[in-house]
Write a protein that binds this DNA or RNA. Structure first.
Length: 182
DNA sequence: GCCAACGTTGGC
DNA sequence: GCCAACGTTGGC
């Protein structure tokens, strides 16, 4: 029994070595961005007059660094609905402006207020997304989990909570296939 | 509403 | 720098 437990342990350690860290997906021009549709949905973006939205409220350093250092105009975004019924990718968009200061951090009345960030020394940034495009099919989390070739996506990794994640070109084309197939 | 898994904070 | 306590995320 102890031997079995030990070999399980080694398999787990081995797997943890094989697991890609978020930064291993860089550089990339494909991203997944999570939003709770009750707060801001793909349709909110689509039906807004400008079809653009400044992505405020990100308060995680790794997600911030992706926006600040790696997301460029023209990059493609998978718009993901979290805490939703159902959860999954609801549409495609583009980065239309690279990162600028997130002023919501200065606003004491904002849920995104953060005393760490000041106008003199801003801490948080956001990109602007736009050019929303509908998918033929909503890509459910369930269908992503069911697809072996997508098993390395950060999204489906246990405990991974990053709200902005790099996506590999192979993963993106597979997702696009799922989103567009008849 | 529950809770696992994570990130952050702050005492030491 | 360690690490316990706490707050948050997000699927179910």
């Amino acid at each position: 029994v102890a031997e079995t437990a030990l070999s399980h342990h080694f398999v787990e350690v081995e797997n943890s070595f094989k697991m890609k860290a978020a930064n291993d997906y860089l550089p990339t021009e494909y991203w997944l961005m999570k939003s709770e549709p009750d707060t801001f949905s793909f349709n909110d973006l689509y039906s807004s007059k400008s079809q653009k939205e400044f992505w405020d409220g990100v308060r995680n350093y790794q997600a911030r660094n992706f926006m600040r250092d790696h997301m460029k105009v023209g990059h493609t975004i998978l718009f993901y609905h979290s805490n939703a019924q159902p959860t999954g990718i609801s549409g495609i968009a583009k980065v239309v402006a690279s990162a600028t200061v997130d002023h919501s951090a200065f606003d004491k009345k904002s849920p995104y207020y953060d005393a760490k960030s000041s106008i003199e020394a801003p801490c948080w940034v956001g990109v602007t997304i736009g050019e929303p495009q509908h998918l033929k099919n909503f890509i459910t989390l369930q269908s992503i989990k069911a697809e072996p070739s997508l098993s390395e996506m950060l999204l489906v990794r246990n405990g991974q909570r990053l709200s902005i994640q790099p996506v590999s070109p192979e993963e993106f084309s597979k997702l696009l296939y799922l989103g567009c197939k008849l």
